[in-house]
Nucleic acid binder design. Structure first.
Lengths: 281, 281
DNA sequence: ATCGCGCTTCCGGCCACCGGAAGGAGCACG
DNA sequence: CGTGCTCCTTCCGGTGGCCGGAAGCGCGAT
Protein backbone atom coordinates (compact mmCIF):
# COMPACT_ATOMS: atom_id res chain seq x y z
CA UNK A 1 0.00 0.00 0.00
CA UNK A 2 2.34 2.71 1.14
CA UNK A 3 4.99 2.69 -1.49
CA UNK A 4 6.79 5.73 -0.25
CA UNK A 5 10.47 6.12 -0.81
CA UNK A 6 11.05 2.82 0.87
CA UNK A 7 13.18 0.75 -1.41
CA UNK A 8 13.31 -2.73 -0.11
CA UNK A 9 14.22 -6.08 -1.52
CA UNK A 10 14.70 -5.64 -5.22
CA UNK A 11 11.53 -4.66 -7.02
CA UNK A 12 10.43 -1.52 -5.26
CA UNK A 13 7.52 0.56 -6.31
CA UNK A 14 6.81 4.24 -5.89
CA UNK A 15 3.53 5.46 -4.62
CA UNK A 16 0.79 4.76 -7.11
CA UNK A 17 -0.92 7.64 -8.81
CA UNK A 18 -4.06 6.86 -6.87
CA UNK A 19 -2.18 7.06 -3.62
CA UNK A 20 -0.74 10.40 -4.62
CA UNK A 21 -4.15 11.77 -5.46
CA UNK A 22 -5.52 10.59 -2.15
CA UNK A 23 -2.49 12.05 -0.46
CA UNK A 24 -3.42 15.39 -1.92
CA UNK A 25 -6.90 15.10 -0.49
CA UNK A 26 -5.40 14.15 2.86
CA UNK A 27 -3.52 17.41 2.88
CA UNK A 28 -6.79 19.14 3.67
CA UNK A 29 -8.23 18.88 7.10
CA UNK A 30 -9.62 20.84 10.02
CA UNK A 31 -7.49 23.95 10.22
CA UNK A 32 -6.26 23.46 6.67
CA UNK A 33 -9.31 24.20 4.57
CA UNK A 34 -7.40 26.25 2.03
CA UNK A 35 -3.88 25.53 0.80
CA UNK A 36 -1.48 26.88 -1.78
CA UNK A 37 -0.15 24.55 -4.42
CA UNK A 38 3.21 24.46 -2.71
CA UNK A 39 1.48 23.78 0.57
CA UNK A 40 -0.29 20.80 -0.91
CA UNK A 41 2.93 19.51 -2.43
CA UNK A 42 4.68 19.86 0.91
CA UNK A 43 1.92 18.20 2.88
CA UNK A 44 1.56 15.35 0.42
CA UNK A 45 5.28 14.89 -0.02
CA UNK A 46 5.17 15.41 -3.77
CA UNK A 47 7.43 17.34 -6.12
CA UNK A 48 5.88 20.63 -7.08
CA UNK A 49 5.44 19.80 -10.72
CA UNK A 50 3.74 16.54 -9.91
CA UNK A 51 1.41 18.22 -7.48
CA UNK A 52 0.70 20.86 -10.06
CA UNK A 53 -0.40 18.33 -12.63
CA UNK A 54 -2.54 16.28 -10.29
CA UNK A 55 -4.12 19.25 -8.57
CA UNK A 56 -4.93 20.67 -11.98
CA UNK A 57 -6.85 17.56 -12.88
CA UNK A 58 -8.64 17.51 -9.57
CA UNK A 59 -9.63 21.13 -10.02
CA UNK A 60 -10.88 20.50 -13.54
CA UNK A 61 -13.13 17.77 -12.28
CA UNK A 62 -14.36 19.85 -9.36
CA UNK A 63 -12.81 17.91 -6.51
CA UNK A 64 -10.83 21.03 -5.70
CA UNK A 65 -11.66 24.65 -6.38
CA UNK A 66 -9.36 27.57 -6.63
CA UNK A 67 -10.25 30.65 -4.64
CA UNK A 68 -9.66 34.20 -5.72
CA UNK A 69 -6.48 34.30 -3.69
CA UNK A 70 -5.11 31.40 -5.70
CA UNK A 71 -5.40 28.94 -2.88
CA UNK A 72 -7.14 25.64 -3.34
CA UNK A 73 -9.96 24.29 -1.24
CA UNK A 74 -12.21 21.28 -1.38
CA UNK A 75 -14.74 21.62 -4.16
CA UNK A 76 -18.47 21.28 -4.23
CA UNK A 77 -18.30 18.24 -6.46
CA UNK A 78 -16.32 16.27 -3.93
CA UNK A 79 -18.71 17.33 -1.22
CA UNK A 80 -21.56 16.04 -3.35
CA UNK A 81 -20.01 12.61 -3.70
CA UNK A 82 -19.11 12.53 -0.03
CA UNK A 83 -22.68 13.36 0.88
CA UNK A 84 -23.64 9.97 -0.57
CA UNK A 85 -21.90 8.13 2.25
CA UNK A 86 -24.62 6.03 3.83
CA UNK A 87 -23.31 6.61 7.32
CA UNK A 88 -23.86 10.29 6.72
CA UNK A 89 -26.82 10.77 4.42
CA UNK A 90 -29.02 7.83 5.32
CA UNK A 91 -28.47 8.31 9.01
CA UNK A 92 -28.75 12.07 8.99
CA UNK A 93 -31.90 12.09 6.92
CA UNK A 94 -33.79 9.99 9.42
CA UNK A 95 -32.23 11.42 12.52
CA UNK A 96 -32.75 15.07 11.69
CA UNK A 97 -36.31 15.48 12.92
CA UNK A 98 -35.41 14.04 16.30
CA UNK A 99 -32.27 16.12 16.58
CA UNK A 100 -34.44 19.09 15.74
CA UNK A 101 -36.80 18.41 18.57
CA UNK A 102 -33.99 17.85 21.01
CA UNK A 103 -32.34 21.05 19.92
CA UNK A 104 -35.55 22.94 20.20
CA UNK A 105 -36.15 21.61 23.68
CA UNK A 106 -32.70 22.44 25.01
CA UNK A 107 -31.44 25.26 22.77
CA UNK A 108 -27.94 24.02 23.43
CA UNK A 109 -25.80 21.63 21.42
CA UNK A 110 -26.99 18.41 19.85
CA UNK A 111 -24.51 16.03 18.24
CA UNK A 112 -24.70 12.86 16.22
CA UNK A 113 -21.62 10.71 15.76
CA UNK A 114 -20.46 7.38 14.39
CA UNK A 115 -17.40 5.35 15.20
CA UNK A 116 -14.49 5.02 12.80
CA UNK A 117 -11.64 3.01 14.23
CA UNK A 118 -10.72 4.39 17.59
CA UNK A 119 -12.36 7.72 17.11
CA UNK A 120 -15.79 9.25 16.88
CA UNK A 121 -16.65 11.21 13.75
CA UNK A 122 -19.32 13.84 14.17
CA UNK A 123 -21.86 13.51 11.41
CA UNK A 124 -24.23 16.23 12.46
CA UNK A 125 -24.30 19.03 14.94
CA UNK A 126 -26.90 21.58 15.86
CA UNK A 127 -25.62 24.44 17.95
CA UNK A 128 -27.18 27.55 19.30
CA UNK A 129 -24.89 30.55 18.74
CA UNK A 130 -25.07 31.40 22.41
CA UNK A 131 -24.70 27.87 23.70
CA UNK A 132 -21.62 26.50 25.39
CA UNK A 133 -18.64 26.49 23.08
CA UNK A 134 -18.05 22.97 21.91
CA UNK A 135 -14.81 21.80 20.46
CA UNK A 136 -16.37 19.40 18.01
CA UNK A 137 -17.43 20.20 14.46
CA UNK A 138 -19.17 18.38 11.67
CA UNK A 139 -16.64 16.11 10.04
CA UNK A 140 -14.37 16.37 13.04
CA UNK A 141 -12.89 13.58 15.10
CA UNK A 142 -12.45 13.04 18.83
CA UNK A 143 -11.06 10.20 20.92
CA UNK A 144 -13.63 7.66 22.03
CA UNK A 145 -12.85 7.61 25.74
CA UNK A 146 -13.24 11.31 26.43
CA UNK A 147 -16.62 12.22 25.00
CA UNK A 148 -20.18 11.20 25.73
CA UNK A 149 -20.85 10.13 22.18
CA UNK A 150 -17.55 8.30 22.10
CA UNK A 151 -18.09 6.41 25.34
CA UNK A 152 -21.43 5.15 24.11
CA UNK A 153 -19.96 4.02 20.80
CA UNK A 154 -17.08 2.37 22.63
CA UNK A 155 -19.34 0.67 25.13
CA UNK A 156 -21.20 -1.11 22.35
CA UNK A 157 -18.23 -1.63 20.04
CA UNK A 158 -16.82 -5.11 19.33
CA UNK A 159 -14.80 -6.44 22.26
CA UNK A 160 -11.62 -6.29 20.20
CA UNK A 161 -12.00 -2.56 19.66
CA UNK A 162 -12.66 -1.99 23.33
CA UNK A 163 -9.54 -3.87 24.35
CA UNK A 164 -7.43 -1.97 21.86
CA UNK A 165 -8.61 1.34 23.21
CA UNK A 166 -8.21 0.22 26.80
CA UNK A 167 -4.69 -0.96 26.03
CA UNK A 168 -3.68 2.16 24.15
CA UNK A 169 -2.91 5.57 25.58
CA UNK A 170 -5.83 7.54 26.99
CA UNK A 171 -4.87 11.18 26.51
CA UNK A 172 -6.34 13.69 28.93
CA UNK A 173 -8.11 16.68 27.45
CA UNK A 174 -8.82 18.10 30.90
CA UNK A 175 -7.91 17.03 34.44
CA UNK A 176 -11.26 15.29 34.60
CA UNK A 177 -10.79 13.11 31.51
CA UNK A 178 -10.73 9.41 32.27
CA UNK A 179 -7.19 8.13 31.81
CA UNK A 180 -7.24 4.99 33.94
CA UNK A 181 -8.17 1.86 31.93
CA UNK A 182 -9.85 0.32 34.96
CA UNK A 183 -12.02 3.36 35.54
CA UNK A 184 -12.89 3.44 31.85
CA UNK A 185 -13.81 -0.24 31.91
CA UNK A 186 -16.19 0.32 34.79
CA UNK A 187 -17.60 3.39 33.10
CA UNK A 188 -18.33 1.44 29.93
CA UNK A 189 -20.10 -1.24 31.95
CA UNK A 190 -22.18 1.47 33.57
CA UNK A 191 -23.02 2.91 30.16
CA UNK A 192 -24.24 -0.48 28.97
CA UNK A 193 -26.22 -0.91 32.17
CA UNK A 194 -27.82 2.51 32.07
CA UNK A 195 -28.07 2.90 28.32
CA UNK A 196 -26.69 6.40 28.63
CA UNK A 197 -23.32 8.08 29.17
CA UNK A 198 -22.81 11.22 31.20
CA UNK A 199 -19.50 13.02 30.69
CA UNK A 200 -18.88 15.99 32.90
CA UNK A 201 -15.92 18.21 32.14
CA UNK A 202 -13.95 15.62 30.21
CA UNK A 203 -13.52 17.66 27.06
CA UNK A 204 -14.07 21.09 28.47
CA UNK A 205 -14.37 21.79 32.17
CA UNK A 206 -17.39 24.00 31.53
CA UNK A 207 -19.38 21.50 29.48
CA UNK A 208 -21.23 18.31 30.24
CA UNK A 209 -22.63 15.85 27.72
CA UNK A 210 -25.35 13.25 27.93
CA UNK A 211 -25.29 10.58 25.22
CA UNK A 212 -27.39 7.58 24.20
CA UNK A 213 -27.00 4.81 21.61
CA UNK A 214 -28.80 4.65 18.27
CA UNK A 215 -29.46 1.19 16.86
CA UNK A 216 -29.94 0.00 13.29
CA UNK A 217 -32.15 -2.71 11.83
CA UNK A 218 -29.95 -5.50 13.12
CA UNK A 219 -29.96 -4.05 16.63
CA UNK A 220 -26.35 -3.08 16.46
CA UNK A 221 -25.38 0.34 17.71
CA UNK A 222 -24.65 2.37 14.59
CA UNK A 223 -24.45 5.85 16.03
CA UNK A 224 -24.75 7.87 19.17
CA UNK A 225 -26.31 11.19 19.95
CA UNK A 226 -25.65 13.60 22.72
CA UNK A 227 -26.68 16.90 24.19
CA UNK A 228 -24.01 19.22 25.52
CA UNK A 229 -25.00 21.64 28.24
CA UNK A 230 -23.14 23.97 30.57
CA UNK A 231 -21.56 22.07 33.41
CA UNK A 232 -22.58 24.60 36.02
CA UNK A 233 -25.96 23.96 37.50
CA UNK A 234 -26.82 21.27 35.03
CA UNK A 235 -29.38 18.71 35.98
CA UNK A 236 -28.79 15.45 34.11
CA UNK A 237 -32.05 13.97 35.31
CA UNK A 238 -33.96 16.49 33.28
CA UNK A 239 -32.03 15.71 30.11
CA UNK A 240 -31.45 11.97 30.22
CA UNK A 241 -35.03 10.99 29.38
CA UNK A 242 -35.16 13.38 26.45
CA UNK A 243 -31.88 12.08 25.03
CA UNK A 244 -32.95 8.48 25.49
CA UNK A 245 -36.29 9.14 23.85
CA UNK A 246 -34.69 10.84 20.86
CA UNK A 247 -32.17 8.02 20.45
CA UNK A 248 -34.98 5.51 20.58
CA UNK A 249 -36.96 7.49 18.05
CA UNK A 250 -34.07 7.47 15.60
CA UNK A 251 -33.51 3.77 16.19
CA UNK A 252 -37.14 3.17 15.34
CA UNK A 253 -36.85 5.29 12.20
CA UNK A 254 -33.84 3.18 11.21
CA UNK A 255 -35.84 0.01 11.62
CA UNK A 256 -34.62 -1.27 14.97
CA UNK A 257 -37.06 -4.00 16.05
CA UNK A 258 -36.53 -3.49 19.78
CA UNK A 259 -37.25 0.19 19.57
CA UNK A 260 -40.42 -0.59 17.68
CA UNK A 261 -41.52 -3.25 20.11
CA UNK A 262 -41.45 -1.12 23.21
CA UNK A 263 -43.80 1.81 22.84
CA UNK A 264 -41.89 4.39 24.84
CA UNK A 265 -42.73 5.23 28.39
CA UNK A 266 -40.76 2.85 30.61
CA UNK A 267 -37.56 4.67 29.90
CA UNK A 268 -36.66 4.74 33.58
CA UNK A 269 -36.07 0.98 33.68
CA UNK A 270 -34.07 -0.05 30.65
CA UNK A 271 -33.41 -3.75 30.07
CA UNK A 272 -30.02 -4.75 31.36
CA UNK A 273 -29.73 -8.25 30.04
CA UNK A 274 -29.51 -7.54 26.30
CA UNK A 275 -27.30 -4.57 26.92
CA UNK A 276 -24.67 -6.58 28.72
CA UNK A 277 -24.91 -9.52 26.38
CA UNK A 278 -24.09 -7.15 23.58
CA UNK A 279 -20.55 -6.62 24.60
CA UNK A 280 -19.57 -10.07 23.46
CA UNK A 281 -21.01 -9.50 20.02
CA UNK B 1 -4.71 0.08 -28.01
CA UNK B 2 -4.96 0.96 -24.41
CA UNK B 3 -7.00 4.14 -24.89
CA UNK B 4 -9.15 2.75 -27.65
CA UNK B 5 -12.51 4.11 -26.62
CA UNK B 6 -11.70 7.76 -26.78
CA UNK B 7 -8.31 8.07 -28.37
CA UNK B 8 -9.71 10.39 -30.97
CA UNK B 9 -9.16 13.22 -28.55
CA UNK B 10 -12.55 14.60 -29.31
CA UNK B 11 -14.46 13.75 -26.19
CA UNK B 12 -13.11 15.47 -23.09
CA UNK B 13 -9.82 14.64 -21.49
CA UNK B 14 -7.65 11.63 -21.99
CA UNK B 15 -8.15 8.99 -19.37
CA UNK B 16 -5.28 9.63 -17.05
CA UNK B 17 -5.17 7.62 -13.88
CA UNK B 18 -6.56 10.59 -12.00
CA UNK B 19 -9.43 10.86 -14.44
CA UNK B 20 -10.18 7.19 -14.03
CA UNK B 21 -10.24 7.49 -10.27
CA UNK B 22 -12.56 10.45 -10.49
CA UNK B 23 -14.64 8.53 -12.99
CA UNK B 24 -15.08 5.85 -10.38
CA UNK B 25 -16.30 8.41 -7.89
CA UNK B 26 -18.66 9.78 -10.52
CA UNK B 27 -20.25 6.38 -10.81
CA UNK B 28 -21.90 7.03 -7.50
CA UNK B 29 -24.81 9.39 -7.37
CA UNK B 30 -28.37 9.81 -6.21
CA UNK B 31 -30.02 6.48 -6.79
CA UNK B 32 -26.65 4.74 -7.02
CA UNK B 33 -25.34 4.87 -3.48
CA UNK B 34 -24.09 1.29 -3.53
CA UNK B 35 -22.53 -0.45 -6.51
CA UNK B 36 -20.88 -3.76 -7.28
CA UNK B 37 -17.38 -3.77 -8.66
CA UNK B 38 -18.69 -4.67 -12.09
CA UNK B 39 -21.26 -1.92 -11.82
CA UNK B 40 -18.55 0.60 -11.12
CA UNK B 41 -16.48 -0.66 -14.02
CA UNK B 42 -19.46 -0.41 -16.31
CA UNK B 43 -20.45 3.05 -15.18
CA UNK B 44 -16.92 4.38 -15.38
CA UNK B 45 -16.16 2.66 -18.66
CA UNK B 46 -13.20 0.78 -17.27
CA UNK B 47 -12.04 -2.80 -17.76
CA UNK B 48 -12.92 -4.91 -14.78
CA UNK B 49 -9.36 -5.60 -13.77
CA UNK B 50 -8.49 -1.93 -13.87
CA UNK B 51 -11.51 -1.02 -11.81
CA UNK B 52 -10.62 -3.76 -9.39
CA UNK B 53 -7.18 -2.36 -8.80
CA UNK B 54 -8.25 1.25 -8.44
CA UNK B 55 -11.27 0.50 -6.29
CA UNK B 56 -9.06 -1.59 -4.05
CA UNK B 57 -6.80 1.36 -3.45
CA UNK B 58 -9.72 3.68 -2.84
CA UNK B 59 -11.18 1.25 -0.34
CA UNK B 60 -7.86 0.90 1.47
CA UNK B 61 -7.69 4.62 1.94
CA UNK B 62 -11.30 4.89 3.03
CA UNK B 63 -12.74 6.75 0.08
CA UNK B 64 -14.93 3.74 -0.56
CA UNK B 65 -16.18 1.15 1.88
CA UNK B 66 -17.34 -2.34 1.16
CA UNK B 67 -20.66 -3.37 2.65
CA UNK B 68 -21.48 -6.79 3.97
CA UNK B 69 -23.14 -7.66 0.69
CA UNK B 70 -19.90 -6.99 -1.15
CA UNK B 71 -21.10 -3.82 -2.75
CA UNK B 72 -19.14 -0.63 -2.49
CA UNK B 73 -20.40 2.69 -1.21
CA UNK B 74 -18.84 6.04 -0.50
CA UNK B 75 -16.74 5.90 2.64
CA UNK B 76 -16.67 8.03 5.72
CA UNK B 77 -13.21 9.30 4.95
CA UNK B 78 -14.30 10.84 1.69
CA UNK B 79 -17.28 12.38 3.39
CA UNK B 80 -14.93 13.92 5.94
CA UNK B 81 -12.83 15.57 3.27
CA UNK B 82 -15.90 16.71 1.41
CA UNK B 83 -17.26 18.26 4.56
CA UNK B 84 -14.35 20.71 4.40
CA UNK B 85 -15.77 22.39 1.32
CA UNK B 86 -16.21 26.02 2.34
CA UNK B 87 -19.42 26.38 0.40
CA UNK B 88 -20.83 23.63 2.55
CA UNK B 89 -19.27 23.80 5.99
CA UNK B 90 -18.65 27.52 6.40
CA UNK B 91 -22.02 28.43 5.02
CA UNK B 92 -23.95 25.72 6.80
CA UNK B 93 -22.38 26.43 10.15
CA UNK B 94 -23.56 30.01 10.17
CA UNK B 95 -26.87 29.43 8.47
CA UNK B 96 -28.07 26.59 10.65
CA UNK B 97 -29.56 28.60 13.50
CA UNK B 98 -31.64 30.65 11.10
CA UNK B 99 -32.76 27.61 9.17
CA UNK B 100 -33.70 26.12 12.50
CA UNK B 101 -35.91 29.00 13.39
CA UNK B 102 -37.53 29.03 9.99
CA UNK B 103 -38.15 25.33 10.21
CA UNK B 104 -39.54 25.63 13.68
CA UNK B 105 -41.89 28.38 12.58
CA UNK B 106 -43.24 26.57 9.54
CA UNK B 107 -42.70 22.87 10.29
CA UNK B 108 -42.42 22.32 6.57
CA UNK B 109 -39.33 22.21 4.35
CA UNK B 110 -36.42 24.59 4.55
CA UNK B 111 -33.67 24.46 1.94
CA UNK B 112 -30.33 26.10 1.45
CA UNK B 113 -28.65 25.97 -1.94
CA UNK B 114 -25.67 27.32 -3.86
CA UNK B 115 -25.13 27.64 -7.59
CA UNK B 116 -22.74 25.41 -9.47
CA UNK B 117 -22.73 26.07 -13.16
CA UNK B 118 -26.27 25.98 -14.46
CA UNK B 119 -27.68 24.09 -11.53
CA UNK B 120 -28.48 24.59 -7.90
CA UNK B 121 -26.89 22.23 -5.40
CA UNK B 122 -28.75 21.78 -2.15
CA UNK B 123 -26.37 22.16 0.75
CA UNK B 124 -28.82 21.75 3.57
CA UNK B 125 -32.38 20.69 3.99
CA UNK B 126 -34.64 20.47 7.00
CA UNK B 127 -37.82 18.55 6.41
CA UNK B 128 -40.66 17.56 8.62
CA UNK B 129 -41.58 13.90 8.06
CA UNK B 130 -45.16 14.88 7.43
CA UNK B 131 -44.44 17.90 5.27
CA UNK B 132 -44.99 18.09 1.53
CA UNK B 133 -42.85 15.62 -0.34
CA UNK B 134 -40.00 17.48 -1.91
CA UNK B 135 -37.95 16.10 -4.74
CA UNK B 136 -34.71 17.66 -3.62
CA UNK B 137 -32.18 16.17 -1.26
CA UNK B 138 -28.96 17.22 0.36
CA UNK B 139 -26.25 16.97 -2.25
CA UNK B 140 -28.82 16.89 -5.03
CA UNK B 141 -29.05 19.10 -8.09
CA UNK B 142 -31.91 20.85 -9.82
CA UNK B 143 -32.11 23.18 -12.84
CA UNK B 144 -31.91 26.86 -11.97
CA UNK B 145 -34.99 28.06 -13.81
CA UNK B 146 -37.52 25.75 -12.21
CA UNK B 147 -36.97 26.18 -8.49
CA UNK B 148 -37.30 29.06 -6.06
CA UNK B 149 -33.76 28.72 -4.82
CA UNK B 150 -32.54 28.40 -8.38
CA UNK B 151 -34.36 31.46 -9.67
CA UNK B 152 -32.86 33.58 -6.93
CA UNK B 153 -29.37 32.30 -7.64
CA UNK B 154 -29.88 32.86 -11.34
CA UNK B 155 -31.29 36.34 -10.86
CA UNK B 156 -28.10 37.45 -9.13
CA UNK B 157 -25.68 35.35 -11.18
CA UNK B 158 -23.19 36.95 -13.60
CA UNK B 159 -24.86 38.15 -16.80
CA UNK B 160 -22.99 35.53 -18.82
CA UNK B 161 -24.49 32.72 -16.81
CA UNK B 162 -27.95 34.17 -17.15
CA UNK B 163 -27.65 34.43 -20.91
CA UNK B 164 -26.38 30.88 -21.17
CA UNK B 165 -29.33 29.58 -19.23
CA UNK B 166 -31.78 31.73 -21.15
CA UNK B 167 -30.30 30.51 -24.42
CA UNK B 168 -30.23 26.86 -23.44
CA UNK B 169 -33.19 24.51 -23.16
CA UNK B 170 -35.59 25.10 -20.28
CA UNK B 171 -37.00 21.66 -19.49
CA UNK B 172 -40.46 21.54 -17.94
CA UNK B 173 -40.84 19.56 -14.75
CA UNK B 174 -44.57 20.28 -14.61
CA UNK B 175 -46.97 22.12 -16.93
CA UNK B 176 -46.41 25.20 -14.82
CA UNK B 177 -42.65 25.30 -15.16
CA UNK B 178 -41.36 28.38 -16.94
CA UNK B 179 -40.10 27.36 -20.36
CA UNK B 180 -40.27 30.64 -22.25
CA UNK B 181 -37.01 32.63 -22.09
CA UNK B 182 -38.90 35.92 -22.21
CA UNK B 183 -41.09 34.98 -19.29
CA UNK B 184 -38.05 33.81 -17.38
CA UNK B 185 -36.25 37.06 -18.10
CA UNK B 186 -39.15 39.06 -16.70
CA UNK B 187 -39.38 36.72 -13.72
CA UNK B 188 -35.72 37.25 -12.91
CA UNK B 189 -36.17 41.01 -13.09
CA UNK B 190 -39.07 40.69 -10.69
CA UNK B 191 -36.97 38.61 -8.34
CA UNK B 192 -34.27 41.28 -8.29
CA UNK B 193 -36.90 43.94 -7.73
CA UNK B 194 -38.70 42.12 -4.94
CA UNK B 195 -35.72 40.37 -3.40
CA UNK B 196 -37.68 37.13 -3.29
CA UNK B 197 -38.81 34.42 -5.68
CA UNK B 198 -42.13 32.65 -5.46
CA UNK B 199 -42.41 29.41 -7.41
CA UNK B 200 -45.81 27.79 -7.42
CA UNK B 201 -46.13 24.30 -8.86
CA UNK B 202 -43.00 24.45 -11.00
CA UNK B 203 -41.36 21.38 -9.58
CA UNK B 204 -44.36 19.65 -8.13
CA UNK B 205 -47.91 20.83 -8.73
CA UNK B 206 -48.68 20.43 -5.05
CA UNK B 207 -45.76 22.46 -3.72
CA UNK B 208 -44.87 26.11 -3.65
CA UNK B 209 -41.55 27.62 -2.66
CA UNK B 210 -40.55 31.05 -1.44
CA UNK B 211 -36.87 31.90 -1.75
CA UNK B 212 -34.57 34.80 -0.85
CA UNK B 213 -30.90 35.60 -1.51
CA UNK B 214 -28.08 35.23 1.01
CA UNK B 215 -25.14 37.59 0.59
CA UNK B 216 -21.50 37.22 1.62
CA UNK B 217 -19.01 39.77 2.87
CA UNK B 218 -18.52 41.32 -0.55
CA UNK B 219 -22.27 41.71 -1.03
CA UNK B 220 -22.40 39.08 -3.69
CA UNK B 221 -25.17 36.52 -3.51
CA UNK B 222 -23.50 33.31 -2.37
CA UNK B 223 -26.51 31.20 -1.57
CA UNK B 224 -30.26 31.12 -1.45
CA UNK B 225 -32.73 29.74 1.00
CA UNK B 226 -36.30 28.74 0.57
CA UNK B 227 -39.33 27.40 2.33
CA UNK B 228 -41.49 24.85 0.55
CA UNK B 229 -45.12 24.65 1.58
CA UNK B 230 -48.20 22.93 0.19
CA UNK B 231 -49.54 24.77 -2.82
CA UNK B 232 -53.14 24.49 -1.69
CA UNK B 233 -54.29 27.28 0.54
CA UNK B 234 -50.81 28.72 0.89
CA UNK B 235 -50.46 32.36 1.77
CA UNK B 236 -47.14 33.71 0.50
CA UNK B 237 -47.62 36.98 2.32
CA UNK B 238 -47.32 35.20 5.61
CA UNK B 239 -44.10 33.47 4.62
CA UNK B 240 -42.22 36.06 2.58
CA UNK B 241 -41.22 38.25 5.52
CA UNK B 242 -39.98 35.29 7.51
CA UNK B 243 -37.88 34.02 4.60
CA UNK B 244 -36.48 37.46 3.92
CA UNK B 245 -35.63 37.97 7.57
CA UNK B 246 -33.86 34.62 7.79
CA UNK B 247 -31.89 35.32 4.60
CA UNK B 248 -30.87 38.68 5.96
CA UNK B 249 -29.88 37.12 9.26
CA UNK B 250 -27.59 34.66 7.51
CA UNK B 251 -26.13 37.42 5.35
CA UNK B 252 -25.34 39.33 8.48
CA UNK B 253 -23.73 36.28 10.05
CA UNK B 254 -21.61 35.94 6.90
CA UNK B 255 -20.47 39.53 7.21
CA UNK B 256 -22.59 41.27 4.61
CA UNK B 257 -22.26 45.02 5.28
CA UNK B 258 -25.68 45.92 3.87
CA UNK B 259 -27.46 43.41 6.04
CA UNK B 260 -25.64 44.83 9.03
CA UNK B 261 -26.37 48.42 8.14
CA UNK B 262 -30.11 48.12 7.94
CA UNK B 263 -31.52 47.00 11.25
CA UNK B 264 -34.44 44.95 9.96
CA UNK B 265 -37.92 46.35 9.69
CA UNK B 266 -38.29 48.02 6.31
CA UNK B 267 -38.40 44.73 4.54
CA UNK B 268 -41.44 45.80 2.52
CA UNK B 269 -39.46 48.32 0.51
CA UNK B 270 -36.20 46.76 -0.56
CA UNK B 271 -33.73 48.91 -2.47
CA UNK B 272 -34.13 48.45 -6.20
CA UNK B 273 -31.14 50.35 -7.46
CA UNK B 274 -28.37 48.12 -6.08
CA UNK B 275 -30.37 45.04 -6.91
CA UNK B 276 -30.69 45.90 -10.57
CA UNK B 277 -27.19 47.21 -10.85
CA UNK B 278 -26.02 43.88 -9.64
CA UNK B 279 -26.96 42.09 -12.78
CA UNK B 280 -24.17 43.75 -14.66
CA UNK B 281 -21.58 42.67 -12.13
C1' DA C 1 17.31 46.73 -8.21
C1' DT C 2 17.66 42.41 -6.20
C1' DC C 3 16.01 38.74 -3.84
C1' DG C 4 12.71 35.19 -2.54
C1' DC C 5 8.60 32.74 -3.13
C1' DG C 6 5.20 30.55 -5.63
C1' DC C 7 3.34 29.18 -9.97
C1' DT C 8 3.56 27.33 -14.72
C1' DT C 9 5.47 24.90 -18.65
C1' DC C 10 8.46 21.70 -21.01
C1' DC C 11 10.34 17.18 -22.35
C1' DG C 12 13.22 12.72 -22.43
C1' DG C 13 13.58 8.43 -20.07
C1' DC C 14 11.83 4.77 -17.60
C1' DC C 15 8.82 2.04 -15.01
C1' DA C 16 4.19 1.69 -13.19
C1' DC C 17 0.05 1.02 -15.19
C1' DC C 18 -2.91 -1.51 -18.32
C1' DG C 19 -6.04 -5.08 -19.41
C1' DG C 20 -6.59 -9.71 -21.65
C1' DA C 21 -6.96 -14.11 -19.92
C1' DA C 22 -7.59 -17.76 -16.68
C1' DG C 23 -9.63 -19.53 -12.57
C1' DG C 24 -12.78 -19.66 -8.50
C1' DA C 25 -17.09 -18.80 -5.89
C1' DG C 26 -21.97 -18.36 -5.57
C1' DC C 27 -26.61 -18.83 -7.49
C1' DA C 28 -30.58 -20.12 -10.49
C1' DC C 29 -32.29 -23.34 -13.60
C1' DG C 30 -33.56 -27.63 -16.09
C1' DC D 1 -26.01 -32.84 -10.97
C1' DG D 2 -24.55 -30.58 -14.74
C1' DT D 3 -24.86 -26.10 -17.05
C1' DG D 4 -24.76 -21.36 -17.56
C1' DC D 5 -24.81 -17.40 -15.86
C1' DT D 6 -22.64 -13.09 -12.92
C1' DC D 7 -19.34 -11.41 -10.18
C1' DC D 8 -14.85 -11.41 -8.20
C1' DT D 9 -9.82 -12.17 -7.95
C1' DT D 10 -5.12 -12.88 -9.55
C1' DC D 11 -1.37 -12.95 -12.84
C1' DC D 12 2.04 -11.05 -16.08
C1' DG D 13 4.38 -9.03 -20.32
C1' DG D 14 4.46 -4.96 -23.17
C1' DT D 15 4.36 0.00 -23.59
C1' DG D 16 2.80 4.58 -23.29
C1' DG D 17 1.65 7.71 -19.53
C1' DC D 18 3.75 9.55 -15.69
C1' DC D 19 7.69 11.64 -13.33
C1' DG D 20 10.27 15.45 -11.87
C1' DG D 21 14.52 18.37 -12.76
C1' DA D 22 15.11 22.58 -14.81
C1' DA D 23 14.03 26.96 -16.73
C1' DG D 24 11.09 30.92 -17.04
C1' DC D 25 7.43 34.17 -15.28
C1' DG D 26 4.91 37.30 -11.95
C1' DC D 27 4.70 39.48 -7.72
C1' DG D 28 5.69 41.52 -3.40
C1' DA D 29 9.14 42.54 0.03
C1' DT D 30 13.56 44.25 1.31
Amino acid sequence: MSRRDDDQGGSSAGPSVTARVLGILSAFGPGAEALTLSGIARAAGLPLSTAHRLVGELATWGALERGEDGRYHVGLRLWEVGALAPRSLGLRERAMPYLEDLYEATRQNVQLGVRDGHEVVYVERLAHPEAVRVFSRVGGRMPLHATGVGQVLLAYAPAAVQEEVLAGPLPALTPRTITDPQVLRRTLAAVRREGVAVCDGMVDLLAMSVAAPVRGEDERVVASLSVVVPSAGAEPRAIVPAVRAAARGISRALGSPAARRRPLGIVTTPPTAPADAERGA
